[in-house]
């Protein structure tokens, strides 16, 4: 495909012809895409387009029926989710999956333990990480009572604790207030500045257009377009499938 040539730098993640059926329905249909190292990529599409399924395929929770997933020149297909995490794929979930019976800091420690056995060192590191997302004052609290924005941040923080190279964010800002959204945009910018590759699913078009450098559009399990945010916002097919629905 033509777009491969347009991207000179090395790809951190390559999907080739990923296909997944759920009881006869095509959840994903021959999806191929490449993620550039260090980029922020947006994944958009109407409800049920297969965005979360694609994330689950990348992070290993759903095995694809067909296709090859390559991460850092390594074929991932046969690896379990935890092995992919160890290789450097971190993720968040559409509805934050926080360990709600543990304290905020313990949530982060679980992530840190992947690369360390030293609890006191982990604790210090966890405090540092929490400071970055401005949750350090809640570290001994139960995350149950945190507002949704803080839960999302905690989940990102927890994923960061595993020292990922690629971070998959499933709806990082849905349900956030405008102010919280701005904070999240900042956070994502900071992380990207450190060389982390970020792949974001989002419903809010404006957000994705502001944040990402490259946008991929899914519809009915198929990739219907990809390009710079500017190109996508004027792409006929995309407008028809997605923007035309009037947000």
């Amino acid at each position: 495909m033509a777009h491969i040539d347009e991207k000179p730098s090395e790809n951190i993640l390559e999907l080739d012809n990923i296909t997944k059926y759920f009881g006869g329905i095509h959840a994903l249909q021959g999806v191929s895409l490449n993620i550039k190292r260090g980029a922020i990529i947006g994944l958009i599409g109407p409800n049920g387009a297969g965005k979360t399924t694609l994330f689950n395929v990348i992070s290993g929770f759903i095995p694809p029926d067909k296709g090859i997933i390559t991460f850092n020149q390594k074929v991932l297909n046969k690896l379990h989710p935890h092995e992919r995490s160890i290789l450097g794929i971190g993720r968040t979930f559409q509805l934050p999956k926080i360990f709600s019976n543990m304290s905020v800091i313990e949530n982060v420690i679980i992530g840190l333990l992947q690369n360390s056995n030293d609890f006191s060192a982990c604790k210090e590191q966890a405090k540092e990480l929490l400071k970055e997302v401005e949750l350090d004052s809640f570290s001994e609290f139960s995350p149950k009572d945190l507002p949704i924005a803080s839960k999302k941040k905690l989940e990102i923080c927890r994923a960061l604790a595993t020292a990922p190279k690629l971070l998959l964010l499933d709806e990082a800002i849905s349900g956030l207030t405008p102010k919280e959204t701005l904070e999240m945009v900042d956070l994502i910018g900071t992380l990207s500045g450190r060389g982390l590759t970020i792949f974001i699913i989002e419903h809010v078009m404006k957000f994705i257009m502001n944040v990402s450098q490259w946008v991929i559009v899914l519809n009915h399990g198929e990739k219907i377009a990809e390009g710079t945010p500017e190109d996508i916002s004027i792409n006929e097919t995309v407008i028809e499938a997605y923007l035309g629905r009037k947000e």
């Binding site: 989710p81 160890i86 979930f93 420690i109 927890r158």
Partner: peptide, 24 residues
Amino acid sequence: SKIGYYLLATGEDEEAARSLGVNT
């Protein structure tokens, strides 16, 4: 211990634990 932390995480939310590198 580490196993204990991982065990609690597994019990709380297995999917999240796996995404953090825990072989649940």
